[in-house]
Simulated assay, not measured.
Amino acid sequence: MASPAFVLLHGAWHSPRCWSRLVPELEKAGYTTVAPSLPSSGSTPPTRDWAGDVEVIRRTVSQLVMERGVVVVMHSFSGMTGGTALEGLDKQSCLAKGLRGGVVRLIYVVAFLVPEGFQHSPHGTRDQMVPEMKTDLERGTVTVLPEDAKDMFYQDVDDETVVELVKDLRPQSIGAFWSTTEHAAWRVIPTTYILTLKDKPSTVAATRYLIDTAKASGPHKIDSVIEVDTGHSPFISQPEWTTETFLEEVNRTPVAA
């Protein structure tokens, strides 16, 4: 079977352009990459929920697993949509359907590793949102101001690059934060978690809690937790390290061969 393809899922407020430093590294190593645009970020008008994200993820992965293995990489917010979109797309389920591929590994990059039935914020509220998340309930959006972006996303990125990165930030649908997960793909698909230690201290603490809670919640396939001394977006600040780590994780996944 051909080398697995990487499906790269961007987080809230971002677009596929956030992967622009990582994609060339993965492709140079001989891997196909697909980075879909998730509609809850930047759609006008804002989406009512994250159903469009789930549909895009599921359609993208379903096309690939017909012929090859897939590694799904989720950053931050997309851990929720990615985790819920992959039901029945794991390798074993795909083989049972007569397909040649399947999702062989999940890589959560400081992403929401959450169980079934998880909701970030109760409907109609901004509960659980940090002060940097500016909500507009009338417009149905959550935004992050340019002056807050470095502290939120790019702690170890130089200021000149941050100026360029914030130009691509867009409003996020608040309805996506009110949506509820229906599946936890990490229970059935081998899973790597990358924990970024230079992130916001509150995010580091929350991340450790999510990992520990997931492991204690029942069956799971979280077989690798990697701590790295970077900020929230290591694929921007350390693309070579990120590529090397991703490939190491793929290479130790037997069904990816």
Score class of each variant (00 low, 15 high):
D136H: 02
W178G: 14
A149G: 02
T181M: 04
A184Y: 07
V204G: 05
W186S: 14
W178M: 12
Q172M: 15
V157D: 05
S173Q: 03
Y154A: 04
M152H: 00
D199R: 02
P146Y: 03
P122T: 15
M133F: 10
V204K: 02
A206H: 12
E132C: 09
K167Y: 10
V162Q: 03
G124L: 14
V204D: 04
H123N: 13
P201G: 02
P171S: 07
Q119N: 06
H123S: 15
K198F: 13
G140M: 01
L165V: 14
Q155C: 13
L137S: 03
K200C: 01
D199P: 06
T181K: 03
L210N: 05
K200W: 00
F153G: 07
G117I: 06
V142E: 03
K198W: 13
I174F: 02
G140S: 00
D168L: 10
L210M: 10
T143M: 13
E138C: 04
D156M: 01
V166T: 12
L137V: 05
P171R: 05
T207G: 06
A185Q: 04
M129I: 08
Y154E: 09
M133Y: 09
Y193E: 06
Q128F: 11
Q119I: 13
D136W: 03
Q119C: 10
S173T: 07
V162K: 08
V162A: 05
D158V: 11
T141P: 13
A206I: 09
E160T: 11
T196W: 02
D127C: 11
L137I: 03
R139S: 08
V162Y: 06
V188A: 07
R126G: 07
L145G: 00
M129R: 07
D136N: 05
A184H: 07
Q155Y: 13
T141K: 09
T207I: 03
A184N: 02
H183E: 04
R170M: 15
I189S: 15
F153E: 06
P190W: 14
P190V: 14
Q119P: 01
F118G: 11
D159Q: 08
G140W: 00
R187E: 10
V157N: 08
Y193Q: 01
D127S: 14
T141G: 10
G140N: 00
T125N: 14
P131S: 07
R126Y: 05
T135I: 06
A176E: 08
G175S: 09
V163F: 15
D156S: 00
W186C: 15
L169Q: 13
E138V: 04
Q128G: 01
D168H: 15
I189D: 12
M133G: 01
E138S: 06
L145Q: 04
D151M: 13
E164P: 14
G117S: 06
S179N: 03
T141Y: 05
T161Q: 11
L169E: 06
I194E: 03
D151F: 15
D148E: 04
L197W: 01
E116V: 14
S173L: 10
D148H: 02
D156Q: 00
P146Q: 03
F153R: 06
M133E: 05
I189R: 09
